[in-house]
Simulated scan of single mutants.
Amino acid sequence: MATEKDRAIIAPMLARAFAEDPVFAFIFPNQEARQRQLRRLFSLLIASDLRSGGGFVVEEGAAATLWRAPGQAKVGWLEMLWNSPALVHALGTSLIRALRTSAAVERRFPAQPFTYLHIAGCDPAAQGRGLGGAAIRAGLVAAQPGMPCYLETPTEANIGLYQRFGFSVTAEWRVPDGPRLWSMVRPPA
């Protein structure tokens, strides 16, 4: 189980893992600044996800998943307001693009309660060793029984990975003027 102490290890790993992710490349088009901004953003997202669900880390931070509990998928306005200086610092000139992307993601959330696999990442240097799968498995085992799990991915190559864990594509869609994503749901265990 991830803790607040893990944030310093997980944030830079996730920044490396998502360096070429279509959503984050859209939000942060400047490739040079993206790593710095991603580290800051992931540090905030990790803290929020740990408060609103939990996380799992494998191999001392080589891979991690961050989950949000049923009814906690959306980050509330009060939390965003509380963290607004840090958000502005992390997002910089990408703030509007990030908020529009987040709103598009939230519009696609299932109507019924669900456990949200918000972030799953593996350090590029550790990929292919099953570590990302181990972090996903840990979250699925800990998920609330009888509750579906939901995620979205902008990487078509990841669909097969998630299908091996019981997820099915429920929709293919685009962020307005942005990348294509696939929504996926895993029925209750």
Rank of each mutant, 00 (worst) to 15 (best):
114 F>I: 02
115 T>G: 13
116 Y>T: 10
117 L>E: 07
117 L>I: 03
117 L>P: 04
117 L>D: 08
118 H>V: 00
119 I>Y: 00
119 I>Q: 00
120 A>L: 14
121 G>P: 02
121 G>H: 04
121 G>F: 04
121 G>Y: 03
125 A>Y: 05
125 A>E: 15
126 A>S: 15
127 Q>I: 04
128 G>Q: 03
128 G>H: 03
128 G>D: 05
128 G>A: 02
129 R>A: 13
129 R>P: 00
129 R>V: 01
130 G>C: 13
131 L>W: 06
132 G>A: 14
132 G>E: 13
133 G>A: 06
133 G>H: 05
134 A>K: 15
134 A>V: 08
135 A>G: 13
135 A>P: 12
136 I>E: 05
137 R>L: 11
138 A>P: 02
139 G>Y: 06
139 G>T: 11
140 L>R: 08
140 L>W: 07
140 L>H: 07
140 L>A: 09
141 V>I: 14
142 A>N: 07
142 A>C: 05
143 A>I: 02
143 A>M: 06
143 A>Q: 10
143 A>G: 06
143 A>L: 03
143 A>R: 10
144 Q>E: 15
145 P>N: 12
146 G>K: 11
146 G>V: 12
146 G>M: 11
147 M>T: 15
148 P>H: 05
149 C>P: 00
151 L>P: 08
151 L>E: 13
151 L>Y: 03
152 E>Q: 15
154 P>Y: 12
154 P>R: 07
155 T>E: 15
155 T>G: 09
156 E>R: 10
156 E>C: 01
156 E>Q: 11
156 E>I: 04
156 E>A: 12
156 E>H: 02
157 A>I: 09
157 A>M: 10
157 A>P: 00
157 A>E: 15
157 A>R: 13
158 N>G: 11
158 N>W: 11
159 I>F: 00
160 G>K: 10
160 G>T: 09
160 G>V: 02
161 L>V: 11
161 L>N: 01
161 L>C: 00
161 L>Q: 03
162 Y>L: 01
162 Y>M: 01
163 Q>T: 11
163 Q>C: 07
164 R>Y: 04
164 R>D: 12
164 R>W: 05
165 F>D: 09
166 G>P: 03
166 G>M: 03
166 G>L: 01
166 G>T: 04
166 G>Y: 01
167 F>K: 04
167 F>C: 05
168 S>T: 15
169 V>M: 09
170 T>P: 01
170 T>M: 05
170 T>W: 02
171 A>Y: 05
171 A>G: 13
172 E>S: 14
172 E>D: 08
173 W>C: 07
174 R>T: 09
175 V>P: 08
175 V>I: 15
176 P>R: 07
177 D>I: 01
177 D>E: 15
177 D>A: 14
177 D>Q: 14
178 G>L: 08
178 G>K: 08
178 G>I: 09
178 G>Y: 07
179 P>R: 06
180 R>A: 13
180 R>S: 12
182 W>H: 14
183 S>R: 07
184 M>H: 02
